[in-house]
């Protein structure tokens, strides 16, 4: 089947015009913000993210509290900053799990023989047959709820998609004209693999990975909503989103800001991924 392997070209955006330069600059600025928030949140915070003040609960955004305060009077802005590390950790680890497994399966299928390809194809089908939350719920039945379980579940459920894309890329590159040319020129199999096939086939992974991070945070937040996610007082974006949901009509700022962080992070990482892919493409 040639379905998902096609989608990678879509997300890799080979045919896309390069994103506007101003966008790239903004994206880089946001990534810098995320990096500081992750490694030195104290530099950006206005107050202790876990400090409660029940008498100041549900205050709308103001100069004192840029993103308002939550149900316990905690500063939402400082919590959003604090939550960057935890959220990115979930996103990055889940994506890493998915990619690692995807690479293994996709590599076996794309570089092995027909039999191996067929076998991996079936394994992939089996993984596909456990969609998202179903797999997560099954894993929770096995090991109980928690952030680690949620991360593993999200990672596993993305693996077959990555595996297909990687296999597709490998097959496409292996049969492409320049690899054929390299073979004709008498380069050894190993050299062709390392020098030509792998670099070209794996380039789209960058884009996939950036897309996956935001998705993983969103999926993990769904598990938080179902009461099977993060550990308080951890200020993880998905957990904040699900905790603030019941106050949506009276205190919109509880969900809108963590929600915006997820969306902007997804858009930013995707844009940068495309820029990288585009540069990579022009280098080829």
């Amino acid at each position: 089947m040639s379905d998902l392997e096609l989608s990678n070209r879509a997300v890799a955006g080979r045919s896309l015009p390069r994103p506007p330069r101003i966008g790239t600059v903004l994206a880089l600025a946001f990534v810098a913000f995320l990096a500081v928030a992750t490694f030195a949140p104290g530099l950006l915070q206005t107050t202790d993210p876990d400090a409660i003040a029940p008498r100041d609960a549900f205050e709308p955004p103001s100069w004192a509290h840029w993103f308002g305060t939550d149900e316990s009077g905690r500063d939402v802005y400082s919590r959003v900053v604090e939550g960057t590390a935890a959220s990115l950790l979930i996103g990055v680890s889940a994506t890493a799990i998915g990619l690692a497994l995807g690479l293994l399966l996709g590599g076996l299928a794309g570089l092995g023989g027909r039999v191996l390809d067929f076998a991996v194809g079936r394994v992939n089908e089996v993984l596909f047959a456990f969609p998202g939350i179903l797999l997560a719920l099954l894993i929770i039945v096995l090991w109980g709820p928690g952030p680690v379980t949620a991360t593993i579940a999200v990672g596993l459920s993305t693996a077959p998609g990555y595996a297909r894309i990687i296999r597709g890329e490998l097959v496409r590159v292996r049969t492409s004209s320049y690899v054929e040319a390299a073979r004709v020129l008498g380069h050894g199999r190993a050299r062709v693999l390392v020098r030509h096939i792998l670099p070209n086939a794996l380039a789209p992974l960058v884009v996939l990975a950036t897309l996956g991070i935001g998705q993983a945070v969103v999926w993990a937040s769904a598990l938080s909503y179902l009461g099977l996610g993060a550990q308080p007082p951890a200020a993880e974006w998905g957990a904040m989103l699900s905790a603030g949901r019941i106050y949506i009509t009276t205190a919109w700022w509880l969900t809108v800001f963590p929600g915006l962080m997820i969306v902007v992070t997804t858009i930013t990482t995707t844009m940068l991924g495309r820029t990288l892919a585009a540069r990579d493409g022009s280098r080829r």
Partner: peptide, 26 residues
């Protein structure tokens, strides 16, 4: 609301040196 209250218990008990480990589970 009760889960939020427990987070406040966690925060106030911490001031005395307690490490309250909340785990929401099914």
């Amino acid at each position: 609301a009760e889960q939020s209250l427990f987070e406040q218990v966690q925060a106030t008990a911490k001031e005395a040196g307690f490490d309250v480990q909340l785990s929401p589970v099914d």
